[in-house]
Write a protein that binds this DNA or RNA. Structure first.
Lengths: 219, 219
DNA sequence: GTCATCATGTAAGCCGTTACATGATTGC
DNA sequence: GCAATCATGTAACGGCTTACATGATGAC
């Protein structure tokens, strides 16, 4: 999960740990954000595995400002090498990470991997622009199916426990049901957008669209 | 968290582990439910701490069908002792748990405790009928405040990252914002219901209602 | 000069999951 | 008799949080 988040953010720009954490809060919300205690070890592990590369920025000899280097660094690190950015705020002792080709491949795997959906869907969606269109569609449809399941199970629970449940539980369940319906509608909009964006030629080997399966208004 | 769920469910009726797990799925949804691997140890711990009491039902000598016993057991166990329920489905080797007075007190503490809101709000709400009305109101208002925070932080993120974020992240953030607005409206309905239910006399020492703080339609 | 923020890490421990092990009961 | 479900547990392991430890920089 943390790998997904880190690789996804580094796909867009090179970042150091502290900034990474701020971005993490932005996209994951204050709740369910990660702490430094897990972020830094994760970065170390990703570096060890060759999925990210780190450049230490400290009191640098910024001689030769235009080295091509390995070519995999861009964004902040490149800007730094180019001579800009040094005064932005204490550019000492910051370890700027960049995603490697292997890291990009891993990100693709993580987004395509169906296990750990549910928990990580939001993150996968946030970074799905780095995957192929068909992976995106699959992700969205898998999510839709899960939500439909969740919805019907929720309704079943309300019926099954109708005598037992008090007004608080009832309100909770009803609210949850409505939220899930809205989530499904949202996913449907994303799916529709995805289909119109994709080249129409690819439509034939994508199979017929899922049965429209009305999710219904308030019962 | 698991303590909260277990004590809450046992407040309503005596249950054995397996049934407890099913109820857990009902109220917490299929996602974020607990597994046997954590449920059974938790039950053992709660029993050790005197928060629940267990009655083993196995191939029983059900002599003397009307013992008063300790008096703390009710529901399924009582029904069993009364001679009903034995044929409902293999009543052998089931360990039926009942909440103790200490357990009820602990449940009250867990619901009132502000830490671990966010993660456990739904569970707290589900079982808040076992607490005092003022605890319920405090819980709801704490939640409302958290959601308002979340909302404003979300909006700030959208503005702050407006250039950086792609359409997937944008859609995610907008959907999240809308969901949060709906959550707040829902909480407001619960708060309103709570206030009208509470005896009007108590209104004076509850302080003035929170500033109405419009959460706004689509910006 | 001191405080808030930026910045990076380590260590202990909680909480929960997965996988394993076992056995009774019911329906076919 | 065999599979599915009911029912209870244990053991290993993983991921993330909390708390701790450290130090630079910038604002006032």
């Amino acid at each position: 999960m943390i790998d997904l988040a880190v690789l996804g953010l580094l796909s867009e720009s090179d970042l150091h740990g502290y900034e990474l954490k701020k971005r993490l809060r932005e996209i994951m919300g204050p709740l369910s954000s990660v702490s430094f205690g897990s972020l830094y070890p994760a970065l170390a592990r990703l570096e060890r595995d060759g999925l990210v590369e780190a450049v230490m920025l400290d009191a640098v000899d910024h001689s030769s400002p235009s080295i091509p280097m390995t070519g995999s660094l861009s964004g902040e690190a490149a800007a730094f090498r180019a001579g800009r950015l040094r005064s932005v705020r204490g550019s000492r002792n910051k370890k700027v990470y960049a995603i490697s080709p292997a890291g990009r491949a891993r990100l693709g795997e993580l987004i395509a991997d169906p296990s750990g959906d549910e928990r990580n869907f939001n993150l996968k969606l946030a970074f799905c622009r780095w995957t192929e269109p068909d992976v995106r569609l699959t992700l969205l449809e898998r999510r839709r199916a899960a939500l439909v399941d969740c919805l019907s199970e929720g309704r079943r629970s309300i019926v099954a426990g109708s005598e037992r449940i008090d007004r608080y539980v009832r309100s909770l369940m009803e609210h949850h049901t409505e939220s899930t319906e809205r989530d499904i509608a949202w996913i449907d909009r994303l799916i529709a957008a995805e289909r119109t964006t994709a080249e129409p030629m690819a439509a034939e080997h994508a199979g017929p669209p899922v049965e429209s399966q009305t999710i219904g208004g308030k019962p």
